[in-house]
Design a protein around this nucleic acid. Structure first.
Lengths: 217, 217
DNA sequence: TGTACATCAGTGAACGCGCGTTCACTGATGTAC
DNA sequence: TGTACATCAGTGAACGCGCGTTCACTGATGTAC
């Protein structure tokens, strides 16, 4: 019988060992690489180098470079979802349901754009697949609430309908349209023609884009 | 005095030589590589291999791999602009100016989405920078009309204002908003959650997205 | 029109690079008696 | 409580790979006399 009862089938999560927690350290290094360089910069050898360990040591914790990259991506997705949740959390609740629902959708869009600008490398790691040999995405990782970014948006749009702001006939696929607009702008900002635009101007553009989406839906 | 008078400063464009036209052949090979693999697949050695020439032969025509990639990108941008022009050309002119202006904007958006779906590799080569060490974009290449994709869109939106469809107060940055929406949807389709959706469904989503943009602007 | 020569497109061979990944190992840890 | 042993995280060395790029060459072409 084991003291630390882990679900069968999963590798037991050790808390410390020779290095301390090499898996965690490699993951952190990978995240750092992604942060300034995007997904392609997540290089196994470089991660081990940063941690101060021999390259093949990584194979005790990740089956391949791809597996490390996937773990980094999960972390990035989770960070994005958390950023949204944080933006949602500061919203005042004492307002008419219609306004509140609208504010929630706006908060999600705003958080997405802010995340893209503040952490372009992580943003691209999380949301820009860029083929990589057809992806293998796996389920998008959740934030603290247990919902991923896309689910947060969908739920917010549902609330828009409940609050009577959005005609139910317009509901279908609305999250794709909203996502498209905000995602597109994010890319224009991080490596398109709007690159180099300062944060304030981007914020203002973002707000006007969200206005457009709101009106358009 | 030369028979073939080319503008001074530009390298004389030879029509044929040992290989015939190696530069053109390498470029075509590069385009083919981009077509099924995106920008990262534009590999100098592979292009020479396909053409049946030794790797370093490429250096007679391109200073570096980057230069080849840029040429391929130009071609992809030009192809996109042409697709838009083709879509514009089939529009009936005998309609009220307001309708015509609207139809032109729609045609551009539709062509963009169609191009993305029909040629995802070229689309990504043309419009997804993905850093590459901060890009070095150069001016976006023009179609037959001499305008690039973005200029075509901007001009169409200008006509929307002239036709009285769009409030001039709403004009500023409208092309960025429209571009964002369509570009975002294109990415969802080519390597996001909407990948694998069939052409008809994508077209319908695209039309509804454009509806949203039109209303929202 | 015919010969001599310069040009320069494509050759052949080789570099150094960093990458992902495999192998047999070693030595600190945690466990059983 | 002390010793013997098994585990397995991290080592050391090496692989093969394809890449971009450089070098000195050679031989067909187009040009000058």
């Amino acid at each position: 019988m084991k003291l630390n009862n882990v679900p069968a089938g999963l590798p037991a999560a050790r808390s410390t060992y020779r290095h301390g927690d090499l898996r965690r350290a490699l993951l952190d290094a990978g995240i750092e690489l992604a942060r300034d360089g995007g997904p392609d910069a997540v290089v196994l050898r470089e991660a081990t180098r940063r941690v101060g360990v021999v390259p093949n040591a990584a194979y005790r914790h990740f089956g391949s470079r791809q597996e490390l990259l996937l773990a980094v991506r999960e972390a990035a997705l989770s960070a994005a979802a958390s950023a949204m949740e944080k933006e949602l959390a500061v919203l005042p609740c004492d307002q008419p349901p219609a306004d509140f629902a609208r504010a929630q959708v706006r908060a999600i869009g705003t958080a997405y754009l802010r995340f893209a600008q503040a952490e372009p490398g992580l943003f691209r790691t999380a949301f820009v697949i860029s083929d990589e040999g057809n992806g293998e995405l796996g389920p998008a990782r959740a934030g603290a609430s247990g919902l991923d970014s896309f689910q947060l948006l969908s739920a917010a749009i549902d609330r828009l309908v409940e609050a009577g702001v959005l005609d139910p006939a317009r509901r279908p696929d609305a999250e794709y349209f909203a996502w498209s607009a905000v995602h597109g702008l994010a890319l224009l900002v991080i490596d398109g023609p709007l690159r180099g635009t300062d944060a304030a101007a981007v914020h203002s553009l973002g707000q006007r884009l969200i206005d457009m989406v709101e009106r358009g839906l």
